[in-house]
């Protein structure tokens, strides 16, 4: 069943105190300013789950599922989720600011740079290669999410149906979520036991 533990993934809190908040900001800023080609959720999986062990894989994937089903940029929502789990309100601000502020400045700087040096074919190729490798980060994430979510026939069928709707039929994500989410949640509701005290 889905884990709903609120804490416990970080026994000796590595993020205590004001310096912890700064470390949180720095970790998100690092991802925000080096994740060329995208795949940011994959970066977070690698950095926060594998390397730093700040949050569990299950926690991160739950956050990602909610992030996608609700309005907002997935990775910004995911940062809110992780920031809250680690340091509540201040953690949210540190996480979102870390992810967006440096990359905001960088994208503008890159734009101005490209305006002046337009048409460097080698740079263009290199960037395309980085983009392809970055999709690998997302694919790794996709495999983890699928492995964890495909618990039975219904869930497996849902994964395939969503995949086919979006990739094969190219239906808008909003439409797919609007149809699939109520069905998925309703079925899950009927299958879960009543409230635990």
């Amino acid at each position: 069943m889905v884990e709903t533990r609120e804490s416990g993934s970080h026994p000796a809190d590595p993020l205590a105190g004001a310096s912890g908040l700064l470390r949180l900001f720095a970790a998100f800023a690092k991802i925000g300013s080096t994740s060329f080609g995208g795949g940011i959720a994959g970066w977070m999986m690698h950095d926060f789950v594998e390397k730093r062990r700040w949050i569990s894989e299950a926690d991160l994937l739950t956050g990602l599922a909610l992030a996608q089903a609700f309005p907002g940029m997935n990775v910004v929502n995911l940062s809110i989720w992780i920031g809250w789990r680690l340091r509540r309100g201040p953690g949210v601000i540190a996480a979102v600011a870390g992810l967006t502020a440096p990359s905001f400045l960088l994208v503008i700087a890159l734009y101005e740079l490209f305006q002046k040096t337009a048409g460097l074919p080698a740079a263009h190729l290199a960037i395309a290669g980085v983009g392809a490798a970055a999709i690998g980060l997302s694919l790794d994430m996709a495999i983890r999410a699928t492995r964890r979510a495909a618990t039975d026939l219904f869930s497996g069928g849902m994964i395939v149906a969503v995949f086919v709707a979006v990739f094969v039929f190219r239906l808008p994500v909003v439409t797919v979520v609007a149809v699939a989410a109520p069905i998925g949640v309703a079925v899950a509701y009927l299958r879960t036991e009543a409230d635990r005290p």
Binding site: A65, A149, A150, V177
Partner: peptide
């Protein structure tokens, strides 16, 4: 619990499809 269990497969399908797109 229902929200999270219900959305997990949709998320998995979306992430995978996005990679392929």
């Amino acid at each position: 619990r229902a929200l999270e269990a219900g959305l997990a497969p949709i998320s998995a399908g979306l992430v995978t499809a996005t990679c392929f797109v």
